[in-house]
Design a binder for these strands. Structure first.
Length: 1168
RNA sequence: AGGGCUAUAGCUCAGUUGGUUAGAGCGCUACACUGAUAAUGUAGAGGUCACCAGUUCAACUCUGGUUAGCCCUACCA
């Protein structure tokens, strides 16, 4: 992979040979080529760039104070690059190149993301170990070393892709996140946050407590990344319980009771019965309606009233059983009679209703909990999708529960915690067992999967969930017990279920900067805008604090040292500070030596495990140990604007010139990743945006819209793609097919289309230019440029189109709309330049001697090609440079000597052409558009009448549309006549009486005037006769009565068309009508035949590979059908085919050619 | 579950502030043109603009809802 195949090399060699032949013959000529082979062009240009340091020069030649700042989001080099990296890097590259052309200095420092779980996983896989083996089977030092060598595993592959796709980024001085300097900058940022206080006086960096996924079997917390690994979410069947919480009769709950003795319960469902001993509250939705139902306890038959959401009644009660006699029920019966007492209790009313603890644990419950807990609270997260609309709430085992209890002031339940007197320890320990204090179940694993296999297989084994359910049933506190299948996350390593468990973590108080982040976000230009306002904006509105802690080895260590009691704490913000603290510690006898005496580059390693050996001393003389956590790798990447320059320790000036970024681009999946962490750190530490413009590109899917994955085998190899089609066609396809923020259905057919359509057409156009320029000895002379005014209409038209394109193209890229820019350029090259300008100009190039008109044609085409090449160069950097160099090579020396615009070695060193309104002539563009439409209509008539284009026709009739029409058409008359092969144009006016007119309502102007009468008016107008239309045109107004109302109609309210010229062959498009005189005379037929003969002879010349300039002898077999043609147009034919002799005679040799009317004659063409 | 994006011809995509007959390229069919030949033109076939309601004289376009695909986030008890 990635290496040139033999066939490519051969093609390349062939390519070079062709080129050398050309060069040898005349080194000052334009290079000509047989075939277009983009990968060969890539190779040639790539070599040229490296030899001539074009990238470096493109940056250096721009002034340092004119910077356009770009940040590279660091990829991780421990995985191979994929095709999706090509699209995001194309986006990055093209805007950087574009702004370089506009004169900006665009530094592009590369970077590598080197920390994080994927690297740890890979290392463990390669060493054949698991996390538990770290420190046992391998030392942490060895582990650290292995990580170091793994992170750059595929760096060469990445660098290769970077070069092959033409992505210009500084590969020699990248920032690397594992370097001490980088880590030091991260520490500095963390210290800023640590010292900075919110408006409420709280530090931005704090230690807190949250509910996180935790694997007791592995004894570690899990990141969301780990939870998103394949196979972690599994279908499991759990025992679920609908528990009955007995309501206490108090002032707050009295309104619910019929009498003080009533047995009133609230129903709540849980899929994790093991959390019931930890229940301290029930959460209801404030706006959900709840019902009170009188019924019987299903398992005991005792009378009971229950409360649950009105919408959930049908899940627990069958309407058939409503109001059935209670006496008939026996415990265990399926039919449970019930009576709805009321169904209008809003959740908010239930708030504060107290209940008895479900599983009493008097030893554990504190007086504070007794007072503030065991009551109903409200929460927005409650739904009535399933369960009872009441959520059993155990704060230590659910993130929602935790938040709800905190918000409602409900204390947590737990046992005394030696580490933290303020927060009780949960009732489940870190191995997954109930603590001993839990009545009945103390010491049991909460999930059956945590027991050993043998224990689980024992005949009398019962899972804890089941034991709890059965206990509740006995106690008349269970309403329903059933199995329930759902998905539940599992630890990817142990395969055992995850618990949600309270863990200590360090947080960044991002929620305190929520408004500021939202406000700054509004100043960022998002592409597409919806990602900024939608996905990102709404995420900011609901921002939670950022959990920084990770229990890992390979990452940036949290620079916080604490005494054991947590009373004293130090956040270190630099190596220098750490060095000083270490000196103090050594002096105090905490450490033997100071590990940080060496240089930051090589003297020490700030990673674990080394950093863990550093014991500092507190002001009061106690030892301080480092908080064991590492920080989230996303903090690493969000720190890159500062850390890439080792700010603030070095490069303060550089940083100032390169902050914030003008532009960044990554995949849309980075919205809450890199885009967020950049924004968060910039807002909190610098009160600034980190970037002003951001393009988020979509995913690359396969041809059928499926995600690419190794298992599906639909992964596209980027190296192979670049190898097969070349970088430019691939890049162009990716930018032009769809907006980069839409998902791309990657189809190689699309690349082929880009290659044929755009690059093939441009290649042909260039080759056409080179062929004739070399024949005529034309060379662009920048000092003898013909003024536009002296050039042909067609030249001025294409120049006008070209500068319209320049304006459109620049506007699109200035607005970060690459797709619009690409499509505009494609249209210009294909529709205008190739299919109109070159096609109609061909004759000017190959006919006759050099003269002013011919020079004008060359200069015009030259200008189009150079400008197009320059415009497309940000997207197609190789082909455009190849084109530029081919076009400028013959004049390069002169241009350099005279310091003219063509002097640059590479298109990427040029200054982008400025929009120039003086070159744009919209009126000219409009009349050429007329010409094109007239030709199109005329050709369609020919087609319908089966009149081939080589057969000349006498006359075309054009009804005159308005005052300027004749002048407009006359200006382009000769083009029209030769294009459609007609002798003359005749204009027809009303006065001729030939025209049959029609009228249509102009809905836009009439709609506002007529309103409801619009429909009928349109019908009336459509029925207007010639006379009525003429009358309106003459008087300028007419009255139209519709449904009794009368309206004043003006000519603007109608669209008048010529429908027909009776007796003529007519084609109509919109207002434009074309009629052809299809009468054939012997003269016309002979001329047509002469042109056919010319065509056949030219084909023979081409087949025989004659040189374009060879003169020939032609012998044509005599035939009655062609005799008039050969006789009348003898000189014409000779001139066209460069024949010295043309005779009608029996040829001795030659080919049989077929002519109109099934005539076949033999023609012999020989070089003189 | 929440949020976001997308839905127009067989395929890839345009479609301006609502306005008449919804377009282009590729592919298919037929016929042309060409001293640019891995191109090009003309014509044809191919559409209930995902679905349902609403606003309006008029909806692909605006509003609300539904469905499907994808992405991000999420222990739904």
């Amino acid at each position: 992979m990635g290496k040139p195949t033999t066939s490519t090399l051969q093609k390349f060699i062939t390519h070079l040979i062709i080129e050398q032949t050309t060069l040898r013959s005349n080194s000052r000529m334009y290079r000509e080529f047989k075939h277009l082979h983009l990968p060969s062009i890539d190779a040639e240009i790539r070599q040229f760039w490296e030899d001539e340091r074009i990238f470096e020069r493109s940056v250096e030649q721009r002034p340092a104070d004119q910077s356009f700042v770009f940040y590279e989001g660091p990829p991780s080099a421990n995985g191979k690059p994929g095709i999706h990296h090509v699209i995001s890097r194309t986006v990055k590259d093209l805007f950087c190149r574009y702004h370089t052309l506009k004169g900006k200095r665009v530094e592009r420092k590369g970077g590598w993301d080197t920390h994080g779980l994927p690297i740890e996983l890979q290392v463990e896989k390669e060493l054949g170990i698991t996390k538990e083996d770290i420190g046992k089977k391998v030392t942490v030092e060895e582990y650290n070393q292995a990580c170091r060598s793994t992170v750059m595993r595929y760096k060469d592959l990445w660098d290769d892709l970077t070069r092959r796709m033409g992505y210009w980024v500084d590969l020699d001085n990248p920032y690397i996140t594992f370097k001490n300097e980088y880590i030091e900058s991260c520490w500095w940022l963390l210290q800023q946050l640590y010292n900075k206080k919110t408006a409420a006086g709280e530090p931005f960096l704090y230690k807190g407590f949250t509910i996180q996924p935790f694997s007791p079997a592995a004894g570690t917390g899990l990141s969301t990344h780990e939870l998103n690994m394949p196979g972690t979410y599994k279908d499991v069947t759990d025992i679920t319980v609908v528990a009955m919480f007995k309501v206490r009769y108090t002032a707050a709950s009295g309104f619910l009771f019929d009498d003080t003795e009533e047995d009133l319960r609230i129903l709540a469902w849980t899929t994790t019965p093991w959390t019931l001993p930890s229940n301290v509250a029930l959460t209801v939705g404030p706006d959900i309606e709840y019902a009170k139902v009188k019924t019987l306890s299903p398992y005991t038959g005792s009378p009971v009233s229950v409360i649950l959401a009105k919408d959930r009644l049908s899940a627990y009660f069958n309407p058939e059983d409503e109001n059935q006699p209670f006496e008939d029920f026996a415990p265990g019966d399926k039919k449970l009679p019930y009576r709805v007492i009321r169904a209008d209790i809003r959740g908010a009313e239930l708030s504060g209703v107290p209940f008895e603890q479900l599983l009493p644990s008097p030893e554990i419950v504190t007086p504070e909990l007794e007072e503030k807990g065991f009551r109903v609270i409200t929460g927005d997260f409650v739904t009535t999708e399933d369960g009872t609309g009441v959520v059993h709430t155990a704060p230590y085992f659910g993130a929602d529960d935790f938040r709800a209890c905190k918000a409602a002031g409900v204390p947590f339940i737990g046992v005394p915690n030696p580490q933290n007197p303020d927060l009780p320890a949960p009732l489940v320990d870190r191995t997954g067992r109930f603590v001993q204090e839990v009545p009945l179940f103390g010491g049991r694993f909460v999930k059956e999967e945590y027991y050993h296999e043998e224990e689980r297989r024992a005949p009398d084994f019962k899972p804890t969930d089941l034991l709890i359910a059965l206990h509740l049933k006995e106690q008349n506190r269970a309403f329903r017990i059933e199995k329930y299948k759902h998905t539940y996350p599992h630890c990817w390593r142990t395969d055992k279920p995850v618990l949600y468990y309270p863990l200590d973590s360090w947080f960044i108080r991002a929620s305190a900067a929520r408004e500021r982040m939202a406000a700054l976000n509004k100043t960022i230009n998002w592409k597409p805008a919806s990602t900024g306002t939608g996905r990102f904006g709404q995420w900011l509105e609901n921002l939670q604090d950022w959990n920084l802690s990770r229990s890992r080895y390979w990452g940036v260590p949290l620079p916080i040292w604490r005494t054991e009691d947590g009373e004293e704490e130090l956040c270190v913000g630099s190596v220098e500070e750490l060095r000083r603290e270490a000196d103090k510690a050594v002096a105090a006898g905490m450490m033997d030596t100071n590990p940080f005496t060496g240089s930051i580059e090589t003297g020490f390693d700030l990673h674990r495990p080394y950093i863990d050996d550093v014991v500092l001393v507190s002001p009061s003389g106690k030892p301080m140990r480092r908080e064991a956590d590492l920080i989230d790798v996303w903090f690493d990447s969000g720190s890159m604007p500062y850390a890439q320059w080792h700010y603030p320790f070095e490069n303060q000036e550089v940083f100032k010139n390169n902050y914030p970024a003008d532009f960044i681009a990554e995949g849309v999946d980075q919205t809450r990743g890199w885009f967020y962490t950049l924004h968060a750190i910039a807002t909190m530490v610098f009160d600034s945006v980190a970037y002003k413009n951001v393009v988020s590109n979509g995913l690359v899917l396969d041809k059928s819209g499926n995600k690419m994955s190794k298992s599906k085998g639909n992964v596209v190899d980027p190296f192979q793609t670049l190898e097969d089609y070349g970088a430019d066609a691939t890049r162009w396809y990716m930018m032009s097919n769809a907006n980069p923020w839409d998902n791309l259905k990657f189809d190689q057919g699309g690349i082929l289309e880009a290659r044929n359509k755009l690059f093939g057409t441009l290649f042909n156009t260039y080759n056409f230019f080179a062929l004739y320029a070399n024949l005529d000895g034309f060379k662009m002379d920048e000092f003898k440029v013909l003024p536009y005014a002296q050039r042909a209409e067609l030249d001025r038209w294409i120049i006008s189109k070209l500068y319209s394109l320049v304006a459109d193209f620049r506007a699109a890229l200035d607005d970060y709309e690459p797709t619009k820019a690409c499509r505009a350029l494609e249209e210009f090259v294909d529709e205008h330049l190739s299919n109109w300008y070159v096609r109609l100009s061909r004759r000017r190039f190959w006919k006759g001697e050099m003269n002013e008109d011919k020079t004008a044609a060359y200069q015009t085409l030259f200008e189009c090609l150079t400008v197009v090449g320059q415009l497309m160069s940000p997207v197609a950097p190789f082909f455009s440079d190849w084109l530029y160099r081919n076009l400028t090579a013959p004049v390069k020396e002169v241009a350099k000597a005279k310091n003219t615009p063509l002097r640059h070695d590479s298109v990427h060193l040029t200054d982008l052409v400025m929009p120039d309104n003086s070159k744009v002539d919209k009126a000219l563009e409009r009349r050429m558009d007329h010409a094109q439409r007239i030709c199109s209509l005329a050709l369609s008539i020919r087609k319908k009448e089966k009149l081939r284009v080589r057969l000349p026709l006498q006359k075309m009739l054009l009804p005159v549309l308005d005052a300027t029409f004749i002048a407009e058409v006359d200006a382009v008359k000769s083009l029209i006549l030769s294009e459609i092969n007609v002798k003359q144009i005749e204009y027809v006016t009303d006065a001729s009486g030939l025209l049959k007119k029609g009228a249509k309502a102009n809905f836009k102007t009439l709609g506002a005037k007529l309103g409801k009468d619009m429909k009928e008016a349109a019908a009336l107008i459509a029925a207007f006769s010639n006379e009525e239309i003429n009358a309106l045109e003459k008087t300028g107004s007419v009255q139209l009565s519709v449904n009794g109302a009368s309206y004043d109609i003006t000519p603007e309210d109608l669209i008048i068309t010529t429908e027909d010229l009776p007796g003529w062959k007519v084609a109509v498009e919109g207002a434009l009508t074309v009629a052809l005189d299809v009468t054939l005379t012997p003269e016309l037929v002979a001329e047509g035949m002469a042109r056919d003969l010319v065509n056949r002879i030219q084909n023979i010349r081409k087949d025989k590979d004659f040189n374009v300039t060879d003169r020939v002898k032609v012998v044509v077999e005599p035939h009655e059908a062609i005799r008039p043609a050969v006789e009348t147009f003898h000189d014409y034919i000779k001139a066209e085919v460069l024949a010295s002799d043309l005779v009608l005679a029996e040829p001795s040799d030659g080919e049989a050619v077929e002519l109109d009317g099934g005539v076949t004659v033999r023609v012999d063409v020989q070089v003189n």
